[in-house]
Every structure is written in C-alpha cells, then in structure tokens.
Design a protein around this nucleic acid. Sequence first.
DNA 1: ACATTTTAAGACACACTACTCTTAATTCTA
DNA 2: TAGAATTAAGAGTAGTGTGTCTTAAAATGT
Lengths: 149, 149
Amino acid sequence: MLLSKSCMYGLRASVQLAGMKGNTYVTIRELSEDLDISFFFLTKVLQRLTQAEILESYKGPNGGVRLLKHPGEVTFLDVVTAIDGSCTLSECALGLPGCGVMKPCPLHDQWSILKENILEMMQNVTIAELARRNSGKQGLDGFMYYLKI
Amino acid sequence: MLLSKSCMYGLRASVQLAGMKGNTYVTIRELSEDLDISFFFLTKVLQRLTQAEILESYKGPNGGVRLLKHPGEVTFLDVVTAIDGSCTLSECALGLPGCGVMKPCPLHDQWSILKENILEMMQNVTIAELARRNSGKQGLDGFMYYLKI
DNA sequence: ACATTTTAAGACACACTACTCTTAATTCTA
DNA sequence: TAGAATTAAGAGTAGTGTGTCTTAAAATGT
C-alpha cells in the first residue's frame, strides 16, 4: 500500500471540500457520511490537516472544517506530508543504512527513478485538479459515485 | 515504505546466496551475521522462502539453506510475493472500492502507470542480476560493504 | 445563564508487523 | 547410541496503525 488509510481519508476529504461550491464550513459528520469513513477516525485525521494549516475548523453550530488555502495551491504531497510526516518514499528499497548516491545498493538507481516519478506526481497534482477530475460523474456528487456500488 | 522489513530481509538473503560461489548450504546464523539481521527473525523469513520453494533447507551439521532454483530465474517479485503475499501495489491510491478501468478515480490513470513501472522493475530484475551488481565492492563481500560503515 | 452543536483531546481496544525465545524435529559424527 | 548442529514450529512481547468512545472546550441561540 502506497499510502496509509489516514492519508487516503485525508485526501478524499480534501478533494471533497475542494469540489464544493463556496468555502463554507462543512461538518465532519457530513463528510464522514459522504465519504463512508468512520466519523471518529476522520475527526482525528482532519485534526492533523487543521494543525498543518491546510484546513481551518470552527466549533459550535454552523461550524465544521473548510480549506484554509486555495485548493489550487494545495498539492497531493502537502496532504500526505501533513498526515504521515515526511514522505517515507525516500528510503533504500532494501533498507540498507549506507545506501545513497555515494554507495548505491544494487537497486538504488532504478528505485531512485521510480521514487522520483511518484514524488513528481504527488507534487504536481493539486486537490483542485483532483476535484475537477472528480466532478460530473453520472450526477453523483464527488466520491459518492465510487462508493454507492 | 515500499516493502516490509521481512521482504527487505528476504531479498538481501536471496541476493547474498545468489552471489556466493557454488550452491552449498549456508547456515542462517552466518547469513544473519553477514546481513546484520536478527537470527530468529531471519529464520522466520527464510522459512517462507523455503515453503515457496525459492530456497531449500537442510537440518543438522553442514545444513542450512541454499537456492533451489537458478538465481537467474528468481525475480525480485518472486521473493516479495513469497513473503508478503500478492503484491499490495494493485490497489487504488485513494482506497476507493469501486475504482478501476470502468470507474477510474481522479488518480487512477497516473497511479496505474507508476504501479506498472514498479511492477515491471520487480519482474525484470532477478536476484542473479542484483548479486552481479553487488559484487566487487571495495573487497567487501556483498552487503558487508553497506553495513560496515 | 442554559441547552445545543460542533471540534479537540485523551483514553482505550484490536490487528498487524517486528522481533525474541523456547521446544521439537531432523541430521550428522563419533 | 549419544550428543551436537541445525532448521521448523509455536508462543510470547512490543510498537504502530486503525478504529471507537468519552469528556472537555468553544461557539451559538434562546
């Protein structure tokens, strides 16, 4: 699995928010139902995005979470890093402590290229772009399309 | 992390065996010391490779493990699959249950290409090739080069 | 002020990976 | 046959990710 479940959930929520008109507060309860994620667990994940200043939250009636930045300025990697910490992709495929440019392990060069491609994808794709690709799916809003059979 | 530690350990042991002259039994104790892996843990990992008929084992004095097949016929992916089960790379990056060719998620196409590249690397690289790349490192046998500072 | 709504924070349980150790089974050698 | 060497199998421990719940804190409205 490339990403942890926490990351997947955080990404889905971010893209969902990015795809909504206006930037009003949306309750985590509503997000959890739309995305088919446990409310309690999603709350924990979104707390990390709030701490990372990708989201902002507001308590009380009419509260919830919303994007703090423009969705075109939040990359896939931003969300992953906020949740999982610095990307764990940067290690040696064989787990050799000394592996690096100076001492490349037998897989180093190949794996470096693959890592670079993945990182590039994560850095170049914004949640705005993902939301755009996710719009207008047979009349179902956002991710409902994938989840409702 | 692309691979589990078990996989990394299994790969390192397989490549180490592939890089040895002759195909005599090598004790797991010796492998564990050469590769800086816990003996007990490596034993568990290599049991899976033995069950998968990548290695064969022999008990008693002068026993140990050795490659069952020709190292040129054992791929990186063979070892990973034997240890971790079928590659977990084949899922949707966002964990959407309905994602696929018919219902591509907003990352599906990009992630498919990256997955394919990784899988291709795993299928095309044999442990013989890895052992070859790993030979003749400043006079240190195999992985010792990376581990001894 | 008080009740309601909502997120924040902390505690808890479960599963899985990583790791350790003990005992059993097998094989060799003397 | 006895003892030593070696893998196999199983039990047990620790840490982490996932998931659940309870309580606290903040904001609203009456």
